[in-house]
């Protein structure tokens, strides 16, 4: 879902960069000692996840894990994803430097949205928490697809066509990420429930 260089218009690039700066600013402000280490680990996870290629479907897609990042980091998902995207652009030539802002918004905004939608389900019983975890994994990818569609629509392509294409190609990714998020939440609920949101303070 990385948008390459030279596709988007200047206005889209600029607004994407502006949104990314705001999100990263909020995220950095919310970082505390605990979250710094956690952001780093999850940033590394996001960085590597893009190498896990899902060989289903006509197009070429990979895992994203932005839902997991959002759930465990809240606003700090913005800086974590920005750092990972910079490194992906430099080392893997995924996306590009000029599209960093847009790509950060594509991945991080759904993460934060899912965080606020589902954080209160996490300390509930597994009957609530696990479906919510699946929704976090799947919905974050779905929302990313919609933002990609929006970004491309501003330039040339048709919104519904592109969005349908992106989301269609990512259905396997959505399912896998939903399941992985389920496992992760089930695991953390048993071992380290403090890592999940909703239990302690409610502020991100």
């Amino acid at each position: 879902m990385h948008i390459s260089e030279g596709i988007l218009s200047g206005a889209v690039l600029a607004s994407g960069a502006a949104l990314a700066v705001v999100g990263t600013g909020i995220g950095l402000k919310r970082l505390d000692a605990d979250r710094i280490a956690r952001s780093g680990i999850l940033s590394a996870c996001f960085f590597v996840a893009s190498l896990i290629h899902v060989p289903i479907g006509p197009s070429s897609v990979h895992l994203i894990f932005n839902g997991v990042l959002g759930l465990l980091l809240g606003w700090a998902a913005f800086p974590a994803i920005l750092v990972a995207l910079i490194l992906q652009a430099v080392f893997f030539q995924f996306g590009g430097i000029t599209t960093l802002g847009v790509n950060t918004v594509v991945m991080a905004l759904p993460a934060v949205i899912c965080y606020f939608l589902f954080k209160n389900f996490m300390d509930k019983s597994p009957a609530w928490a696990l479906p919510a975890a699946f929704a976090v994994g799947a919905l974050s990818v779905l929302l990313s697809g919609i933002i990609v569609g929006l970004a491309l629509m501003m330039t040339e392509e048709k919104f519904f066509e592109v969005t349908a294409l992106v989301i269609g190609a990512h259905i396997p990714v959505m399912i896998i990420e939903g399941i992985v998020t389920c496992f992760l939440v089930a695991f953390l609920k048993k071992v380290q429930p403090d890592m999940l949101p909703g239990r302690r303070k409610t502020s991100g």
Binding site: L31, A37, G40, S43, F47, V48, L87, F91
Partner: peptide
Amino acid sequence: HDVMAGIGYIFGLVGVGAYFYS
């Protein structure tokens, strides 16, 4: 190498972050 380098950078940044925080 690319993967390791990237992860190395991330850990380095965590170190920088922890330093400024402390």
